[in-house]
Structure formats: structure tokens, C-alpha cells
């Protein structure tokens, strides 16, 4: 996803001299294509993320559109106040690119796992928050946000090959993409983990469950209308995110269900706090935290049973 993103950025920068790329000394084999094509618009600022965001704010005030690039934790958490008091407060078009959202940097350990970035970024007013499900969607999301005059956060994964069947790279600001109908269960996912969610939907459909996949790549502005429509017609919704349960997609869905008095039963699948300090491959960690397609299927079936039992009891 990150390679596609930078390739697309190079294409955009060909026509848009405002675009710059700043990296906090990360992106080996990824950022070089931009650096070679636009040496005057590329800066490795060193391992200094606060300054990177501050410099980008100064550049944006003068008319540039700087992209700042780092691993998602370092791109968001270390310079968080600089993001808040910089591009957010000044409403400037700084683009924050965080690579490895969720558990992508699995064996690198918890310091490299971005598990609260969506939560902290989506509370900032006017900050568009984007977490594409696959590289095709990353490409369209970058193009769809290029004209925005405010700041954007891109939470990118590392997967460059797998795509979500039926998504075809669709992305619209403030919209979600629903694949399938899903009267029984809606699986709502964001970011790279959507791939597991899509596998779960396929497995549920194989079992005769009327399941749909709702891809929420635009977390802010929240796709309220699309989520109300999708959740209003499903008995059960399972949210799936490589992120802590608090503040992310699951919280967003709960806010919308509560505010619109929807009858949909929600179960949040997210990263728990019960595995302190444990590392491993992304696949291993997804399984550990109940984010594998098998876990999502089991969660959905349990939830459907629970809802059915509750209805029988009420009847």
C-alpha cells in the first residue's frame, strides 16, 4: 500500500508543484522514487518528528502541500501536539502519512504497533482520517483528498498485493463502501485488517448467513449516512480493526448506533490489552487478538445466536 501510495504521489506531484515529501528518516526502498524525481521537494529531516510536522506547517502556510512520512506511531503520537497546534489549528494542508497502522510491524514490538492512532486523530476537528483497505483504495484515497485545503492523516498498511474483492478501489470522502446486502450481519472494517474481515464475510455467506462487508476507509468525516443505512438493516454488526477497542472504528459505530437509536447489536473485535509485550508476525498477532477471519466468523455466529435467543425469550 505504501509503495502504491508513493507512486501515486509522484504522479500527482508531476502536475502539482505544491506537493513536497518529508520523511523522518524512514521509508527505505519506498521514498526514493519521489526523492529522485523531485530532489528539491524531498527532505529527510532526520529522526525528529515534532520538527518535521512544525516545518511542514511553516511550508503549508506559504502555499505548499507537504506530506510527512513515518511509521504510524511516530507520525502521530510523538508530534501529536504539533499536529494539533499546527495544521489542525491553522487549517493547513499538511498530509500525515503513517505506515504500518495496527499490527503491520508485528515482530518489531509494541513501540511499532499503531493501536490508538485512529482514536487520537479522529477527535481533531477538520482533520480528515483515512485508512484504506488495500492498495487500490489507497491510490484513490490519495487522489480524492488532494484538493482538500485542510490536513489529512493516511493510515497505510504494507500489503501491496491482496485486494478486497468487489471494492475495486472505490473511495469517497465521508462515505463507506458496502459489499453485499447483509440482513443478518454487517462486518464493518477499516484498514488492512479488512482483508480478514472480507474472508470472514465469504465464510459466513458459505454457511448461508446473509452477511455484508462495510469498508470504512474514511473515518473522519465519518460516513454517518452510509453506516446508518448499513447498520439499520442488519441484526448484528461486528466491527473489526487493528486498533484498541476504545476510540477507533468500533467506538465510531457505537456512537452512530446510539445517536440514531438503531436496533443493531454491536460486537467490537479489536486489539486487547491482555498480551503485554508479546510480539510476532502480523498474522500471529491478528490471531492472538481475535482478528483472524476465523475469530470474526465465530464472533458473528455467537452474536447471531445471542440475538436470536434474546428474541425468543422476549417472545
Amino acid at each position: 500500500m505504501r509503495a502504491t501510495f508513493i507512486r501515486t504521489l509522484v504522479e500527482l506531484a508531476d502536475d502539482d508543484p505544491r506537493i513536497m515529501l518529508l520523511t523522518g528518516d524512514l521509508g527505505f526502498t519506498v521514498v526514493e522514487s519521489f526523492a529522485e524525481r523531485f530532489p528539491d521537494r524531498f527532505f529527510n529531516v532526520g529522526v525528529a518528528e515534532q520538527n518535521m510536522v512544525g516545518v511542514a506547517t511553516g511550508l503549508a502556510e506559504a502555499g505548499f502541500v507537504p506530506f510527512v512520512y513515518s511509521i504510524a506511531t511516530f507520525a502521530t503520537l510523538r508530534p501529536y501536539e504539533f499536529i494539533r497546534n499546527g495544521p489542525v489549528l491553522h487549517r493547513l494542508p499538511v498530509r500525515i502519512v503513517g505506515v504500518g497502522g495496527g499490527l503491520d510491524y508485528g515482530s518489531n514490538g509494541v513501540t511499532h504497533h499503531a493501536l490508538e492512532d485512529i482514536a487520537v486523530m479522529r477527535v481533531q476537528p477538520g482533520l480528515t482520517v483515512v485508512a484504506p483497505a488495500d492498495f487500490e483504495q489507497a491510490r484513490s484515497a490519495l487522489r480524492a483528498t488532494n484538493a482538500l485545503t485542510g490536513p489529512v492523516y493516511f493510515r497505510l498498511g504494507k500489503n501491496e498485493s491482496n485486494t478486497i474483492a468487489g471494492l475495486d478501489g472505490r473511495f469517497s470522502l465521508g462515505r463507506a463502501e458496502q459489499i453485499g446486502s447483509g440482513a443478518d450481519v454487517a462486518i464493518v472494517a477499516t484498514g488492512s485488517i479488512t482483508l480478514e474481515a472480507a474472508r470472514a464475510v465469504a465464510a459466513l455467506v458459505d454457511r448461508g448467513v446473509d452477511a455484508s462487508l462495510v469498508v470504512v476507509a474514511c473515518l473522519s468525516p465519518a460516513p454517518i449516512d452510509d453506516l446508518v443505512a448499513a447498520l439499520g438493516s442488519a441484526r448484528v454488526a461486528i466491527t473489526v480493526e487493528a486498533h484498541y477497542a476504545s476510540g477507533g472504528l468500533g467506538s465510531l459505530v457505537c456512537e452512530i448506533v446510539a445517536e440514531h437509536s438503531l436496533g443493531c447489536h454491536i460486537v467490537r473485535r479489536a486489539v486487547g490489552d491482555g498480551h503485554h509485550g508479546i510480539s510476532g508476525s502480523e498474522r500471529y498477532l491478528n490471531g492472538l487478538h481475535g482478528l483472524s477471519s476465523e475469530s470474526v466468523v465465530a464472533t458473528a455466529l455467537e452474536a447471531l445466536d445471542r440475538v436470536a435467543t434474546a428474541r425468543q425469550e422476549r417472545a
Binding site: 516545518v55 511553516g58 506559504a62 504539533f82 491553522h90
Partner: peptide, 29 residues
């Protein structure tokens, strides 16, 4: 900065010099 004549909003110490560095870099570019 919404006040005419104020170039940047400040108040959190340690922020301004990086804003200034970006601004100076922009001038050069």
C-alpha cells in the same frame, strides 16, 4: 493566527522555531 497580523498561533513552548524553519525553507523554495 485568525487575528489579522498574527502569522502563527502559539502558546505551547517549543513549537515556534520549527514553524519558522518551515517558513524560511518555503521562502527559499
Amino acid at each position: 493566527a485568525v487575528l489579522r497580523g498574527v502569522d502563527f498561533s502559539t502558546g505551547s513552548l517549543g513549537h515556534g522555531l520549527s514553524l519558522g524553519a518551515g517558513s524560511a525553507l518555503a521562502a527559499r523554495l
